[in-house]
Nucleic acid binder design. Structure first.
Lengths: 236, 236
DNA sequence: TAAAGCAACTTGTATTTACAAGTTATTCTT
DNA sequence: AAGAATAACTTGTAAATACAAGTTGCTTTA
């Protein structure tokens, strides 16, 4: 049951779940630090460590003398959401199909980014997803990540789960930032078929590299987005 | 001398200054926590608090058993920049034509964003620019900003100058963040003509709202980008 | 009644202590 | 000489404690 997860992290996960799942609403006060101590049998430094993590994730805002105020900021970094694509195109009716379950592959010979040594040595986990809004496919993404310290990852089910959430919860991998390139392109036949595009409909093409808190661990994605009826939205 | 600044913050400011000013280079190790304790006469939790702040800012990366590794993440966050696909390195010649010099106008009736009261009261400065890379037009943008405390702005020459730089240097207006929507679209005849597009070439369409350090002062831009030979590039 | 003051909360800062766990270079053994 | 063991580092987690400082609502006082 313990799973060797530190106490502060367990409390962090619990509070985070309660915030994002709606147990607390925007503006609500979290239990005070002393209450959390008593509730979970830990000391204040440990509780504060958990709260600190929530603060720099932007999920709470602490005010001296007042308490910890719940926030629900848009979870976007750069142009696209990091906690999944849901918040980037609006949460309604988003279904995710896994076209290619995570599997171990070689890195492509012609790869647009330079790989670090541990990355190129350990091989690449490859997966493809197709996301639907209102029953229409709008978002097709190809993801590659290095096979470093990801036990049982290829066995994990990612249906309707955020790739980033799985990485964060089970492997303590957090996305810190990255770089991306955007283009409007004319899709080839395959993309046109996957996204069920009308003829002449261009797609938004994004190539991104996300770096994480693990040194030399980057996530590489290629994205095709049908912007006929939707737009990519982002805060920065 | 004390200034009522907490110790951990003083250490943070000091280390931060040393990192950005180049005392430490990318990849260097900071002094160990115990060394910092001894050097500055504080205890480890206090030192760790300072380091935590640096970690959170992305300026260092800690590794258990190793130390605190200095990072130098890219500076311009969220703002787009152009990068060509042809030649990666070298100073790229970017020419800017002002198609419409800044002039005072009414705000459009159908405006996609909600305007604050001071914004809608004071009218809008309108301008259009066309930017060339290697002699080819690639970037056409329409900008609207509220006419608030911008003396002589409509008389200013913006040829080959950054709009943001003028705002920052002469009017102390800094862009803090914003939101944007992206699409791939089929251009109409006017855009096709301005950007000298081949038939069938889609364009990247961006609608953005940038907020600044001046309350209620936002910059609104519409951008058409020819991504045939170039891409929009961004760090975050 | 209205304002001042005072508890009783809240989070903020800081010390001290202890052990766990990952990394690295040296030393010892084979 | 090559490998294993170890010692000496590093950061990570966690406890118990103390006081400072901001916020709030109740109580006292004018």
């Amino acid at each position: 049951m313990n799973e060797n997860v530190p106490q502060y992290r367990k409390l962090y996960e619990l509070l985070r779940k309660h915030i994002v799942s709606g147990v607390y609403e925007e503006g609500d006060l979290l239990p005070s630090e002393n209450e959390l101590c008593a509730l979970h049998g830990m000391t204040r430094p440990t509780v504060r460590h958990a709260l600190d993590t929530l603060v720099n994730e932007g999920l709470i805002l602490k005010k001296q003398g007042k308490g910890s105020i719940v926030r629900k900021p848009p979870q976007n970094i750069g142009i696209l959401s990091i906690s999944g694509t849901a918040s980037a195109i609006g949460v309604r009716y988003l279904r995710t199909d896994i076209l290619q379950k995570p599997e171990l592959r070689k890195w492509p010979d012609m790869f647009p980014f330079d790989l670090s040594e541990p990355e190129s040595e350990s091989g690449c986990i490859y997966m493809e997803r197709l996301r639907y809004v209102d029953g229409q496919p709008v978002f097709y993404d190809i993801n590659r990540l290095p096979n470093i310290n990801l036990p049982r990852f290829t066995n994990r089910s990612l249906e309707n789960k955020s790739l980033f959430e799985v990485l964060r919860k089970h492997y303590q991998v957090n996305v810190l930032g990255g770089e991306q390139q955007l283009k409007a392109i004319v899709p080839d036949a395959r993309i046109k078929n996957i996204l069920r595009l009308k003829s002449g409909q261009p797609v938004l093409y994004i190539e991104r590299k996300l770096n994480t808190n693990k040194e030399g661990f980057n996530i590489y994605s290629t994205i095709y987005f049908n912007s006929e009826k939707h737009t990519i939205f982002g805060n920065f």
